[in-house]
């Protein structure tokens, strides 16, 4: 890996690490349940992005499978929680 590529990887890893803190703040403070669900979804997608950048950084392409699975599972989990939120009284979609 050439020098500038390593530099870009370092920069992106640092930026993503900083941006992980912001949905964590919303996850702790969120006023309603749906806020926390959205924050959790965004957190999982950001972790998936972090794993993708790390796989480029180390050159291990196996880690891409981990990132893909994490992103898909988190989105499916969000859909399932939305179905659960519909289940109140009079909550027919």
């Amino acid at each position: 890996m050439s020098g500038w590529q390593e530099l870009v990887c370092h920069g992106v890893l640092g930026t993503l690490g900083v941006s992980l803190l912001l949905p964590l703040y919303r996850l702790v403070r969120g006023p309603s349940l749906t806020d926390r669900v959205v924050a959790l979804d965004l957190l999982a997608l950001q972790v998936a992005g972090l794993i993708i950048v790390y796989s480029v950084y180390t050159g291990h392409s196996v880690l891409l499978d981990v990132a893909l699975t994490l992103a898909i599972i988190s989105s499916l989990g969000t859909i399932v929680i939305a179905r659960y939120l519909f289940s109140g009284p009079g909550g027919q979609p």
């Binding site: 979804d41 898909i72 989105s75 859909i79 939305a82 939120l85």
Partner: peptide
């Protein structure tokens, strides 16, 4: 996959939140 699933999840969450 991501372009297909993420908007669906967002739409479902928004509808559920509006109903609630």
């Amino acid at each position: 996959f991501i372009f297909a699933i993420t908007p669906v999840a967002t739409q479902l969450i928004a509808r559920a939140a509006f109903r609630a």
